[in-house]
C-alpha cells in the first residue's frame, strides 16, 4: 500500500468531514432537550427518542418501508435475471432498445414519475394502495438491480456453461446448477442496492402514498412540514443506527465490497 502525502491526507480528511458532518449533526440534535432544533451544549436528553413511542405511525411507516424495499427489490431482481442473461450474452435485434427501456427510470425525474403513477393508479383503482407502491418502486429500482445483475452475467465465462453441457447437462440443469449460482453474488448486490434506493425514495412516493400507506421518508417529510420539533432528528438517528448496525453485520458476514461491487464467488 502506498503512503499518502500530507496534502492528500488533508484532502481526504476534509472529504470525510464533508460526508459525515450532516449525519453527525443530525445525531447530536436528536439528543437536545429543547422543543426546537438546537445543538445540545450542556444538557443532553433522550426526550425525543421517547417521543417516537407516541407516534406509532412512524413505527408502522418504518416497517412498511422495510417491506416495500424488500419486496420491490426482490421482484426487480427476479425480472432482471432473464433480461441480464439475454442482454449480457446475446446479440439480437432490439437489444439496445431493451437496455435503454430498462434503464430509462434513471433518466426520468422522480417528480414526473410520481405524477404519472398518481394518475395511472387512480385510473386502475390502485391509488394509495400498498400494491401501487410496490409496482412504482419496482420500476424505480429496476435499473439498479439490472446494472449489477448484468455485470455478473457479462463476466460469466461461457465455457463454464459449455463444460456443463458437454458433461450431459440439459439447458435447465445448466441454468439451475451453474448459471444461477454463478450470478448469485450479482443478484444479492443488485437487491441490496435496489433496497437502499427504495428505502430512500421520497420524491415519487410522496405523490402516490396515502394516509395509511406512507413510507418512513414520506412520513418524515410530511411531519416536518407542520412541525419544527426535533422528532425527525431522533427518528433519523435511529435509522442511522440501524443502517450502521446492518452494514457492520453484512460486512462481517459477507464483505461489503463484495456486496456492493458484486464480485463473483471465485473472484479471489
Amino acid at each position: 500500500m502506498s503512503r499518502n502525502g500530507p496534502i492528500a491526507l488533508i484532502y481526504h480528511t476534509l472529504f470525510v468531514i464533508f460526508m459525515l458532518a450532516p449525519i453527525l449533526v443530525v445525531c447530536f440534535v436528536a439528543f437536545t432537550p429543547e422543543g426546537y432544533l438546537s445543538f445540545p451544549t450542556d444538557r443532553w436528553s433522550l426526550r425525543w427518542f421517547y417521543a417516537i413511542g407516541r407516534y406509532p405511525e412512524f413505527i408502522s411507516a418504518f416497517w412498511r418501508s422495510l417491506w416495500l424495499g424488500a419486496l420491490s427489490s426482490a421482484i426487480a431482481v427476479a425480472f432482471s435475471v432473464p433480461a441480464a442473461l439475454a442482454i449480457g450474452r446475446h446479440r439480437f435485434r432490439g437489444r439496445d432498445a431493451m437496455t435503454a427501456l430498462f434503464m430509462s427510470p434513471l433518466m426520468i425525474p422522480h417528480v414526473v414519475l410520481g405524477i404519472a403513477f398518481l394518475r395511472f393508479f387512480t385510473e386502475l383503482g390502485l391509488g394509495g394502495t400498498f400494491v401501487g407502491l410496490v409496482l412504482a418502486h419496482i420500476v424505480v429500482v429496476l435499473p439498479f438491480a439490472l446494472r449489477l445483475t448484468l455485470a455478473s452475467a457479462v463476466g460469466l465465462d461461457r465455457s463454464i456453461e459449455h463444460a456443463a453441457i458437454s458433461l450431459g447437462a440439459s439447458d435447465r440443469t445448466v441454468l439451475r446448477r451453474i448459471t444461477l449460482p454463478l450470478v448469485l453474488p450479482g443478484l444479492i448486490s443488485g437487491w441490496a442496492l435496489a433496497f437502499i434506493n427504495s428505502f430512500d425514495e421520497v420524491t415519487m412516493t410522496v405523490f402516490i402514498a396515502a394516509p395509511g400507506t406512507e413510507t418512513l421518508p414520506v412520513r418524515m417529510f410530511l411531519y416536518i412540514q407542520d412541525n419544527i420539533d426535533p422528532l425527525v432528528t431522533s427518528v433519523s438517528a435511529c435509522v442511522i443506527a440501524i443502517t450502521a448496525a446492518a452494514l457492520i453485520a453484512l460486512d462481517r458476514a459477507y464483505g461489503l465490497e463484495r456486496l456492493l461491487v458484486g464480485r463473483s464467488v471465485d473472484g479471489r
Binding site: D157, S159, I160, H162, A163, A164, I165, S166, G168, A169, S170, I178, L182, S264, V265, D266
Partner: peptide, 16 residues
Amino acid sequence: AKRGLGIVFQSYALFP
C-alpha cells in the same frame, strides 16, 4: 449434451 465428449477448455472452466 448427448455427444458424450470430454472437453478441457483453455480457461479450465471449472465450476468455481
